[in-house]
Every structure is written in structure tokens, then in C-alpha cells.
Design a protein around this nucleic acid. Structure first.
Length: 285
DNA sequence: CGTTACCCCTGGAGGC
DNA sequence: TGCCTCCAGGGGTAAC
């Protein structure tokens, strides 16, 4: 049976968004949208009540990701456009059968011939907006974004140059989307631990070789998380509704006071730019 | 220009 | 049982 399965149920950082993309793409690409149902006036941005009119009759040509934005490219006889979806802090996407009643916080349904793609977001920090035209990269939401961390072009040299004028701590710098996209609070901490760099270190005081090590750590951390998420999503699909969401093994995140996996010393929690940071003062310099 | 503070919003956890 | 405070994966904007 088609059933209902969660494509994504966790905190959406880049890996979770990528796992969502991998989960929905096979069912969306090539499909025709019949319309959309919206149930609330605004998320992070205003939610167009006429969204269904933009989508009706459109064929989905690709499901892409830029930073933490999902991009659903659509084509009609005379026009192209892209649906931009962001999951915010609490968003999720799920395929449901057409007769599945909507619950609180189920804000948008994309209507396909035999199922709905249901967008749910309790905190409403996410968004769903339509971009007319084939140049979504020029949309204000995307125009100012920095490089993708998993692209081959994101090298230690690129990171080193980007950090050159930054005296702020490396951890909040890594979370700045104009510098590099997709690195959220969890993976910033995890990647810095993996690279042995203190989250408090001034960004412009990290030498080239350590920037290269940091890029390696960022990419390895993100790839591992995507791989873990991908396998669990497959499990979850087959488990038909079970609680099979993947759990990422974090080395430092939310492990304050617990022993460091490298040296055994207790991990520390501090606050940087209003966000919790976890690290090992002994291993990270 | 770089950097921080605050805001958007709901829900869960823990203290009293 | 309630009511209060604090905290949470993001990110845009105003203000220093």
C-alpha cells in the first residue's frame, strides 16, 4: 500500500533537507501537480492562498536543494517556475493518501493524482513560496547565499580567504550563510570537534592547513549524516509507520558534562551569539 | 562592514 | 493539576 510515511522528522539541517529531497524526488519528478491546499495565512513569509493556481497542471521536472531550501522545478506549456520550500526549525514533509485528515500545523498540501505531499511546521519558521521563471537562484532568498559545503569548489583555500576579515569566533562564522551555507548549530559543533578547532578561536586566526582540515571535517560530518539519514528513511518507509527515524551519533552536541570521546575529559557547553555550543576544551584548540 | 540582539512561533521539560 | 520559565535544528532585520 502507499501508506503514509515520514520523509523527514528531525531537526532540519542540511543533511535532513538532503534526506528529504532524496525521499521525495523519486515520487515527484515527472509527476503532474493538480494544485495545492493552504491552511494558514503565513509561515516565515506570507503563504499565497492562490498557490494552487500557480501549480495546477504543472509537471515537476526536478527536485533540487540549495542550502537548506528545497527547490521543486515545474514546467507548463508556456512557463516555468520553482516552488521554494524551507523546513525552518520544525518543518517536515510526508506523503499521505488523499483522504488523510489534516491535523493542526499541517499548513500546505501539494496535490498529486494519487497522493498528497503534506507540509507540517508547528513553529512556522519555514516557508513555501512560488517563484515565477527559470531563474530561482536570483530569488532574494537565494541570491546572497555562499557556496555549498559539499561542492568540490569549497576548499580550504576558499574557506581561508572567506575567513580572512572575520575576527568573530569560528563557530558563529561557520553558521553564517553568506560565508558557507547549510551548516547549522549541530554540525558546526560536530565539525569543529572533528577538526580539533576550538569554537572560540577567531576565524581569521586559523591557518591554511587547519582550514583544509576543517573543510574535510565539515564534508565528512555532513556526508555521514546524509548516509545515516538515507538508510533510516528507507527503513522507515518499509516499516509502515513505525518510529524508525534515524538518530545521529553526536560526539559533542547535547553532551555537556559527558566524557569526550577522544580524551575522556568532560565536554563543555557555552553560549555563542545566542546559540548553545558544545566542545572539548582539551581536544579543541 | 562586521557583529550582536532580537524577533518570528509552538511545544516540551522542569521547577514550584 | 496548573502556571511559570527556559530551551530548541533557522534566518531575516534592525541597531550598535
Amino acid at each position: 500500500m502507499v501508506g503514509t510515511f515520514a520523509v523527514q522528522n528531525n531537526m532540519p539541517e542540511l543533511p535532513e533537507v538532503e534526506v528529504s529531497r532524496l525521499g521525495i524526488a523519486p515520487l515527484l519528478e515527472g509527476a503532474t501537480l493538480l494544485g495545492a491546499i493552504t491552511r494558514c495565512p503565513r509561515l516565515r513569509a506570507e503563504l499565497d492562498p492562490e498557490l494552487g493556481r500557480c501549480l495546477a497542471g504543472a509537471t515537476i521536472t526536478a527536485v533540487r536543494r540549495r542550502a537548506k531550501y528545497l527547490l521543486i522545478d515545474c514546467r507548463r506549456a508556456q512557463s516555468r517556475g520553482t516552488l521554494i520550500i524551507h523546513l525552518g526549525m520544525s518543518g517536515s514533509l510526508r506523503f499521505v493518501t488523499p483522504d488523510t485528515p489534516a491535523q493542526t500545523h499541517d499548513h500546505v498540501d501539494l496535490v498529486l493524482a494519487d497522493r498528497l505531499l503534506r507540509y507540517r511546521d508547528p513553529r512556522r519558521f519555514g516557508l513555501v513560496v512560488w517563484h515565477d521563471g527559470d531563474d530561482v537562484d536570483r530569488h532574494p532568498l537565494l541570491a546572497g547565499l555562499g557556496p555549498e559545503p559539499l561542492d568540490a569548489g569549497f576548499t580550504g583555500e576558499v574557506l581561508h580567504a572567506a575567513l580572512a576579515r572575520r575576527s568573530q569566533a569560528i563557530k558563529p562564522a561557520l553558521m553564517d550563510a553568506s560565508l558557507v551555507v547549510g551548516i547549522g548549530n549541530i554540525y558546526a559543533a560536530e565539525a569543529l570537534f572533528r577538526a580539533g578547532i576550538s569554537p572560540l578561536r577567531a576565524a581569521n586566526r586559523i591557518a591554511r592547513p587547519r582550514c583544509a582540515a576543517l573543510v574535510d571535517a565539515i564534508q565528512a560530518t555532513l556526508r555521514d549524516a546524509i548516509r545515516a539519514g538515507g538508510s533510516s528513511v528507507r527503513d522507515y518507509v518499509h516499516s509502515d509507520g513505525g518510529a524508525g527515524c534515524f538518530q545521529l551519533q553526536c560526539a559533542v552536541y547535547e553532551r555537556a558534562g559527558e566524557p569526550c570521546l577522544g580524551c575522556g575529559h568532560p565536554l563543555r557547553q557555552i553560549r555563542q551569539a545566542g546559540r548553545s555550543t558544545y566542545y572539548c576544551p582539551h581536544c579543541q584548540r
